[in-house]
Design a protein around this nucleic acid. Structure first.
Lengths: 202, 202
DNA sequence: AGCTTTGTTTAATCGTGAGTATACAAAGAT
DNA sequence: ATCTTTGTATACTCACGATTAAACAAAGCT
């Protein structure tokens, strides 16, 4: 009777955490867990297991699964925009995007591969993307007369930057010093394509 | 004397369908419904409503939601690969992709925006993508020495073609006669970027 | 007319995962 | 030593959506 259940004073030092510390650790785990399959296909048990704690504890830090997910996305968004910045595009934008993706690969994937396609949460990511696409559009509109193609290019430029970054992560981050230059060149290629159509291809 | 031929039409135009006909119509509806939110976030009621029939009928045509979804994806894949073809890339590949996307926009979106990210169903789409990426890789490997960057380029080329097509659909399919040329040019831009890095940008 | 097919409606079952409650144990500060 | 914090385990409620069952009606062939 009085055996296994509780017996690990010396055997396993339990290492308790402070509230804020634990919360952050849960958000880390949630980011990894949700990055695998998105909101609906990830259970709170998945998150708890990933965090190494029991499921019930989650409710001492977050009101609901929904709110926990929003907190996860909020943090990822905040970290991303603090790196990339909200202002105009500069030569530093793409390198900053790559740095952000490199330091928070799970958060990066979560935002752009899942959250962006989830109707209930799309708005959070859209705060970032819409601003960037709008910004890109303003710069591209001067070069591309047809407004439809200008919008097309603005969207695709953003997609190429993001997917280029993710593909770079997936390939093991080769050549980190020049990766930004390649992605930047790919972006330029898209812009050229949108300006001139197929008239001056290789 | 005989009033059979036109008797029923004004009273109750119920218009029953043959089995195969109904099945196809359900698949159409399922494609539209699933294209909005993917497998998990789309209920059988959504599909039934979209098809204009009651939910129970679905089970006379498909064993389960799971199998119905696979059938939907299978058909979309089949239609796509019969258009684009399985062989090598040619000048006709991109135009064919655009035609396919244009004729089956919902199926196209369903495959690449949702199914490709659903662990349980990814394998179906991977049959298409893996083959294409592999093919692209073989052609790119000759121009790009670093194998990691060659794989990166092969993946991104495919992404640009697909996302370029979707963005083109979203913009109302402007300039249909030259859309393929633009997307092709964008693809060439990515290849150029992968070959030379940032050394010869605009 | 009769039989099969294609429907509808209603209701029951059933599993899963979110959310809640309770009781208990150990850590760490005071 | 005691109290608060942080943690565990177990067990429940609850809602939703998939799946099944049953009774019924009209369509359309033969």
């Amino acid at each position: 009777m009085t055996d296994e259940p509780a017996r690990r004073q010396e055997a396993t030092p339990v290492r308790r955490m402070r509230r804020t510390e634990r919360r952050a650790q849960i958000l880390d785990a949630a980011t990894r867990a949700f990055a695998r399959a998105g909101f609906t296909d990830t259970s709170l048990d998945d998150v708890a297991t990933e965090a190494g704690i029991s499921r019930v504890i989650l409710y001492r830090h977050f009101e609901s699964k929904n709110q926990m997910y929003r907190a996860t996305l909020d943090r990822a968004c905040a970290r991303l925009s603090e790196r990339v910045g909200e202002g105009n595009f500069t030569d530093a934008s793409i390198p900053a995007l790559l740095e952000a993706a490199s330091e928070e690969p799970d958060g990066f994937r979560l935002l752009f591969r899942h959250a962006a396609r989830e109707p209930e949460f799309r708005d959070l990511v859209d705060g970032l993307t819409a601003a960037s696409v709008e910004l890109a559009l303003r710069q591209l509109a001067q070069m591309i007369p047809d407004p439809a193609w200008a919008r097309w290019a603005a969207r695709l430029v953003f997609t190429v930057a993001v997917e280029g970054a993710i593909a770079w992560l997936d390939e093991g981050r080769p050549d980190p010093d020049h990766a930004a230059e390649r992605i930047d060149a790919a972006v330029q290629g898209v812009i050229t394509a949108a300006r001139s159509g197929g008239t001056d291809r290789l």
